[in-house]
């Protein structure tokens, strides 16, 4: 915990200095790995939708030489910019396809892409190729990726980590002024959404569950753990998560979920079609037709909210999703 606080304080402390322009070579520690940036990178490969969208928001789309690992359509305001960027793969790209773009930097939101067991490669492989690698701090501060594939969060996700990531990326590219403006905008939206929910004066027993997908429609679903982004949204809005696991995406039986009888259900929507339950229509059909699921209060009162899947992983979309959830809570008619 001390390390987390120190890390955040250190970053926030750095930010005002950065307005003067980044001093190169820039040395920083990214997920425990020493990285040296010699100059503002001219080309970057981003393995993950959330880092790609942050780069777009920082006005750096012309520096992005390739992207990969997409789960939802790009934010509409960047549809044009995204067309000019090559998509190496919708899933994990190969190490060689990343190297072929000859980037000066690779960035990713996930250690299972670039990390000790990285699907793309290890940090050392990129070091040897003289390519700097950077991972979102949301992936490793307070998160343990060694015990399970999706990892477990020991402490609650916080947007401070997201802002730290934006700030670091902005510093790497010497656009700290843009970074600070983006962070200020996002913070304002986050606060407004929280205020809105507070104004609702919700009863203390309101609870929710986030359903990501299921490997087969009727089996135990993947739901959001207590400390991930959905857990953060719920705690920000003063709502209880019916799931108590620290795993990022634990499987929890429908029996446990139904007995907890959540006030509302947030169901993920995604382009991916790997499991039948990836389809939001299939999810809704299941909830309303399964003899157990349909008895839940959330289903009977039609409190099922559709949300983009990647808003449930650490990204700027988490803040947009917080706004959406806050608005939805207002519409549920739950006020005391």
């Amino acid at each position: 915990m001390l390390r987390l606080t120190t890390a955040i304080v250190a970053t926030l402390g750095l930010a005002p200095m950065a307005f003067a322009g980044t001093q190169y070579p820039l040395k920083l520690t990214s997920c425990g790995h020493e990285v040296t940036i010699e100059k503002a990178p001219e080309s970057v490969v981003s393995v993950g939708q959330s880092t790609t969208e942050i780069l777009y928001m920082l006005g750096l789309s012309d520096k992005v030489a390739g992207t990969a690992l997409w789960i939802n359509p790009v934010l509409p305001e960047f549809a044009e910019a995204d067309k000019t960027v090559e998509r190496l793969s919708d899933n994990a790209p190969s190490f060689e396809s990343v190297l072929a773009k000859k980037p000066e930097l690779v960035v990713t939101p996930y250690e299972w892409m670039i990390g000790p067991q990285g699907a793309v490669g290890t940090r050392e492989m990129f070091d040897d190729a003289k390519i700097a690698s950077w991972i979102m701090p949301t992936e490793c501060v307070g998160k343990d990726n060694t015990q399970s594939m999706d990892g477990a969060r020991k402490i609650l996700f916080d947007t401070a980590l997201l802002y730290q990531g934006i700030s670091e990326l902005a510093e790497i590219f010497d656009v700290s002024d843009r970074g600070e403006k983006l962070i200020a905008d996002l913070k304002a939206r986050e606060e407004a959404a929280v205020e809105k929910a507070k104004a609702l004066d919700l009863p203390a027993d309101v609870s929710g569950v986030f359903w990501y997908s299921s490997a087969d429609i009727e089996i135990d679903p993947y739901v959001a753990g207590i400390n991930g982004v959905p857990g953060w949204m719920l705690s920000k809005l003063g709502v209880k998560n019916v799931v108590t696991s620290e795993e990022e995406w634990p499987t929890v039986g429908w029996e446990t979920i139904a007995k907890s009888n959540p006030t509302f259900i947030v169901a993920a929507e995604m382009n991916r079609r790997r499991f039948p339950a990836d389809d939001i229509a299939v999810k809704r059909e299941y909830l309303t037709s399964d003899p157990l699921a349909k008895e839940m209060e959330a289903v009977k009162k039609d409190r099922i909210l559709t949300m983009e899947a990647n808003a449930m992983d650490p990204s700027v979309r988490a803040i947009f999703a917080l706004e959406k959830l806050s608005d939805a809570l207002a519409g549920f008619g739950l006020a005391k």
């Binding site: 299972w112 490997a215 087969d216 009727e218 135990d220 995406w249 039986g253 429908w254 499991f275």
Partner: peptide, 24 residues
């Protein structure tokens, strides 16, 4: 060829047997 962490988990789940999907 193409497994991600979540897929691998989904497969493991199934390869070791699972009765949670059973209904009447």
């Amino acid at each position: 060829q193409s497994a991600s962490a979540e897929q691998a988990r989904g497969i493991m789940f199934w390869l070791l047997g699972n009765l949670s999907g059973i209904r009447w």
